[in-house]
């Protein structure tokens, strides 16, 4: 069990200010919960419990309702993600072309479970629903960058590209 932190004061004040101004710009903040959560996840990278509590108070909604919405939709994550999120497409087109092997390879190479973060904090791996790039199946994306026609053998090279970036900077 992850210990739940419900202390709102732990949240980054600058990011909260950005979130507040977004919420204030909305006509119907309560009805726009999903948009607010999208913005919150964009700013913070994920939706920890204390952030969910903050949103619920800000929109005058029940915290249980907010949590219900967060956990309902697969796009929202309550767990911290790596600097680079490796997403392996699990749409049917990718599946029949062997995306399961690609996913397995990612997990073994990085020595993590799905949705967990590597020790160096650089990567986390998740499977995603069809991203509609079926012509390129199997598809893997790292952050915004999309790789097509990926085989298990190519995974290491792809990941190394991002490790390289890290060393340069």
């Amino acid at each position: 069990m992850i210990k739940t932190n419900l202390n709102i004061n732990d949240l980054d004040k600058n990011l909260l200010r950005d979130l507040d101004s977004y919420i204030e710009s909305l006509e119907d903040p309560k009805g726009s919960l999903i948009n607010v959560l999208h913005r919150a996840q964009m700013l913070f990278g994920y939706l920890p419990h204390n952030l969910q509590l903050y949103v619920s108070r800000k929109l005058d909604l029940n915290a249980a309702k907010v949590n219900g919405v967060v956990t309902f939709y697969s796009f929202f994550t309550e767990k911290k993600t790596g600097k680079y999120v490796v997403s392996v497409c699990m749409g049917t087109a990718c599946y029949v072309k062997g995306s399961e092997k690609v996913l397995e390879k990612c997990l073994t190479l990085l020595d993590v479970e799905k949705n967990e973060i590597t020790k160096d904090g650089l990567f986390s791996v998740k499977d995603v629903r069809c991203i509609g790039a079926c012509g390129l199946a199997p598809v893997l994306s790292v952050g915004e960058k999309v790789y097509g026609h990926v085989s298990a053998d190519m995974v290491e090279d792809i990941l190394n590209k991002f490790r390289g970036d890290e060393n340069d900077s």
Binding site: I34, G68, V69, Y73, S74, R129
Partner: peptide, 23 residues
């Protein structure tokens, strides 16, 4: 308005609930 990843939201009543900020 953005969805948030739920196949069932292709069903019109589910879609409408989602638009109103609900599950």
């Amino acid at each position: 308005r953005l969805g948030a990843g739920a196949f069932v939201c292709g069903e019109e009543t589910a879609l409408i609930n989602s638009l109103q900020g609900m599950r």
